[in-house]
Structures are given as structure tokens and as C-alpha cells.
């Protein structure tokens, strides 16, 4: 049923890139996601936003098949996520790995090609070339042999991005790629994400900065344990939905030219519930 709706929304895109239905995830009987339905059409750039603890990273991990949901299912391009691993590239939070690990930029980016290689087979010249091409795309070609601890935060993020590019996936899942990077790197990353969208790929980004949502993304999902709203930014990134997602704690309200929210009332508001 959801599939039919998505197809109607986007003529030409037969199956949605990601289809989440009735997804409930709980840690120790505490629900982190309640009954989430989501249909992400192919070829869009989508932000997942919501307050801390809203389950943004959990939703992403469920899409990647990294956690087992209590209920519900995830389809990637029409088939269960577990069968579609190679179609999905994952850019975890930068802090999730040990940057003192004895390895180089080229080595880390080559890891993106491991999925296509499968067990035991070693990366060869083709994988190396793919990795080098990905490194060039993120402008890190001068750092190929550099030990990864000697990189700045923004450079590390670009290495992670290159690793995902080397995977040559259809769907890209990124967990806060702009965290701790400078403005220039952020713009460079956004340009890359928009290139991916132009190439027909689907990009899903856990995002924190509400200000930049309309500028960077064309699709948005507002999440707070439940799905508050999901759809084109112009339709669903509204003051009403933001209030629903963030309670009174919205530090920023959408600058809808029509509805004209009053930013002065936004901060503080009702405070923490």
C-alpha cells in the first residue's frame, strides 16, 4: 500500500528507496521508536531531525539492519535491508571509531570496497583505484598516505565520506556528517551530497541544525520516538510540526514566508517537560 502511495508521489520512481513500516525498536523494554512508518522515494536528499533521544540514530541503524527491531520491517529498494547491504553505504558518527588506529587515509577509504569483495578476497588494483577516485572527489588527494590521527576533524569526516563513495551504493546513510567541521568543509560536503542526489542516489542524513534544513535538503523527516511528519521540506517543515517534534523547545522556527512564525516566542517556551 505504502509502495503505491510513494509511486504516486514520484512518478518514475517505481519502488521507494527505503520503506519502513510499523517499526518499533526498544532497548530493555524502553521504546526508542514507536510504530514508525516512512517511505523515502529514490533520488532525494533527506534530513532526519528531532530532539536528543528522539531515536534518529536508532532509525538509521534499523535501516542499515544493525539492530533488530521489536516489530515492523525495513525494505531497501523493495527488499529486506539485510539482503541489500551492498546498496547501502553507512557514514557513522566520527567519534565512533579510534582515530589512533595504525592505518592511512587510502586504507580507510579502501574499506568501502570490502562489501563488494566479500569474505577473504583481498583488495587489489581495482579497489585501490576506486578508493583513489573517491578520495579525489572529496579533495583529499594530498593526504592519501597520511596516518588518520594526523587529520583535522573536517578531514576525517571527508575520509568517511570518501569511504562511503568508494562503496558505490544507491542509498547513503550519514549520522551527523557536519558535526565538528568548519563552514568550508560543511559546504563542500553539502555540494557532494547534492551531486549524489543529481546522480540519482538517495541520501539520508541525521541532522542537527534546523536553520540549514531548507537550504540543504529537499525532503525531511521529523522524529520524536514517533514519526511526526515526513515529506518534502516545503510541505512538512512547518512551525506546527516542529512544535510537535520538539515540544516548546524549538530554538528556531521555520521561516515560512506565508505563515510568518514569531521567533521571539520560540526560545525557552515551556521548558523541559
Amino acid at each position: 500500500m505504502n509502495r503505491a502511495i510513494a509511486a504516486a508521489e514520484r512518478p518514475g520512481a517505481a519502488t521507494p528507496a527505503i520503506e519502513v513500516s510499523d517499526l518499533t525498536v526498544a532497548y530493555r523494554e524502553r521504546p526508542v521508536l514507536w510504530d514508525v512508518d516512512l517511505s523515502v522515494p529514490s533520488g532525494i536528499l533527506m534530513a532526519i531531525v528531532g530532539p536528543n533521544g528522539a531515536g534518529k540514530t536508532t532509525l538509521m541503524k534499523a535501516i542499515l539492519g544493525l539492530i533488530r527491531p521489536a516489530a515492523g520491517r525495513v525494505l531497501v529498494h523493495g527488499r529486506p535491508g539485510g539482503e541489500q547491504r551492498r546498496l547501502v553505504a553507512y557514514v557513522p558518527q566520527r567519534g565512533s571509531v579510534d582515530w589512533d588506529f595504525p592505518t592511512t587515509v587510502l586504507d580507510v577509504v579502501t574499506m568501502g570496497t570490502y562489501g563488494a569483495l566479500g569474505w577473504v578476497r583481498r583488495p587489489g588494483r581495482r579497489e585501490r583505484e576506486r578508493a583513489l577516485a573517491a578520495i579525489a572527489k572529496v579533495g583529499m588527494q594530498d593526504f592519501v598516505g597520511r596516518q588518520i590521527s594526523q587529520l583535522s576533524g573536517g578531514q576525517q569526516q571527508r575520509v568517511f565520506l570518501a569511504r562511503a563513495l568508494a562503496q558505490d551504493a544507491q542509498v547513503f546513510c550519514m549520522d551527523e556528517p557536519f558535526q565538528g567541521v568548519d563552514a568550508r568543509t560543511e559546504r563542500a560536503i553539502v555540494a557532494l551530497l547534492q551531486d549524489l542526489r543529481a546522480a540519482g542516489r538517495t541520501v539520508v542524513v541525521v541532522h542537527h541544525d534546523l536553520q540549514t534544513v531548507p537550504e540543504y535538503f529537499d525532503w525531511v523527516t521529523l522524529l520524536n520516538v514517533r514519526r511526526i511528519a515526513s515529506g518534502p521540506v516545503a510541505d512538512v517543515f512547518t512551525e506546527r510540526n516542529l512544535r510537535l517534534a520538539y515540544g516548546g523547545r524549538v530554538a528556531f522556527l521555520a521561516r515560512d514566508p506565508g505563515s510568518g512564525p514569531d521567533p521571539a516566542t520560540s526560545e525557552g517556551g515551556r521548558g523541559r517537560a
Binding site: 557513522p92 571509531v97 588506529f101
Partner: peptide
């Protein structure tokens, strides 16, 4: 190497 450096990616792949 992959499982030691980035267990999350290892699982995803």
C-alpha cells in the same frame, strides 16, 4: 582490520 577499526561498518557490510 575492519571489525577492529569500525565494527559498525563491518556489521553493515
Amino acid at each position: 582490520k575492519l571489525a577492529t577499526f569500525d565494527a559498525g561498518l563491518a556489521a553493515a557490510l
